[in-house]
Design a protein around this nucleic acid. Sequence first.
DNA 1: TAGATTGTTAATCGATTAACAATC
DNA 2: TAGATTGTTAATCGATTAACAATC
Lengths: 230, 230
Amino acid sequence: MIKTEKIERIEKPLGGIPEPTLRRLPKYIELLTRLKATNMKFVSSNYVAEKLNLDPIQVRKDLAISGTIGKPKLGFDLDDLLAALNHTLNWDNLHDAFLIGVGSLGSALLGYKNFSSYGLNIVAGFDSDQRKVGKVVNGIKVLPVSKLENMIKRMKINIAILTVPSEDAQEIAEEMVEAGILAIWNFAPTHLKLPKDVIVENAQLTQSLGVLTHKLAEKTKKEKMIIHNN
Amino acid sequence: MIKTEKIERIEKPLGGIPEPTLRRLPKYIELLTRLKATNMKFVSSNYVAEKLNLDPIQVRKDLAISGTIGKPKLGFDLDDLLAALNHTLNWDNLHDAFLIGVGSLGSALLGYKNFSSYGLNIVAGFDSDQRKVGKVVNGIKVLPVSKLENMIKRMKINIAILTVPSEDAQEIAEEMVEAGILAIWNFAPTHLKLPKDVIVENAQLTQSLGVLTHKLAEKTKKEKMIIHNN
DNA sequence: TAGATTGTTAATCGATTAACAATC
DNA sequence: TAGATTGTTAATCGATTAACAATC
């Protein structure tokens, strides 16, 4: 009994930020970065809400979790707010990462220069295709996947970007977990079944596409109904 | 008064599926497709829940919205269920789409053969770079972006995949809306401000990356606390 | 039949929205 | 000061989870 209480008291403040809030933070960061470039110094929750089509109260609640305190009548200090939000997402320091699967998507990601703004530093690519091994794609070397486990251990890599075909994803993921990987950013459209202490985030391309095609069907249906009602 | 009531009665059943449910549907489809390949004929909500780390009750509620009725003791007919889920997402018929921005990510997407499983058929690419125009990338022709508006109108294209740099995204999106586009799948990490009847789905790479890096920070922090407590 | 599984109705939980006092 | 904006506390809403009856 006493033990349970203790655990709850320790864990509660840690998993503190609601995931919907967490998913909105990058939107704030993106907007604020744009505003900063125009030399704006303060920004109000109303302004942010209007630009992002959100509710001002929600914006204030969201921004509050970063710990920044706004000034009545003025709003939030742009620099402070940006720094705090970036810190909340852990985007203010770099994490080395491996990318596994140097196909067309993997190569595109290797070429994406902006990952450093998001705390990500890709240090090597891996592929099982001998023809790709040894190549340098956008300045990043491609190594044989056989060396993956060893390199994760040796370099103490925490983050893996998984861009292999669906069929190979589960197996490689398990290997990496074995080697001590802490987080996997999964681009393969398949569910990875791994120990629950491993952080898995799915890039979820099919998810957002599904929402889009479904909404489109609804919209078309609705328009047809309106026509029939006239 | 009477008018408002009428609108509500018409709209309620249309926007019926909760978005969290909608976002889980692709996961079900992916799993069921794999099971189908093993010649399984029936599947229970418990089995699905176990494979996807979900709650069985939630799975049953989710599957119910597709209209499929399960058989007590047996579960759901795999083929029926798959067909119904694909229909719910509108993945059972093809939609022509344009892709705008044939950079490395855009090219990677042009090469992605599986979009047809998701109801998507990319018929042309567009780019503002004269050197890319005229090229054929993975069988898909690249046209000048100056022709975009006209082609959307002429071919009655409903879906656009937007893979241009952030700075250009808003302007091109507005152009496409002008031309009558109904839905935009946005890969640019910027918020598009458009009339609210336009369907915008963000690929949200930064969102999922943000969740990952945040959770990683929490995890590391927690582990440090545990060490200090020992 | 007994047992497994579905599907529905009710309870709980958490996020969003509203109301309002505090403050520059 | 008056007015705009913040931040907190309460109310509402919707999704998840629980309980249980129905059925093969």
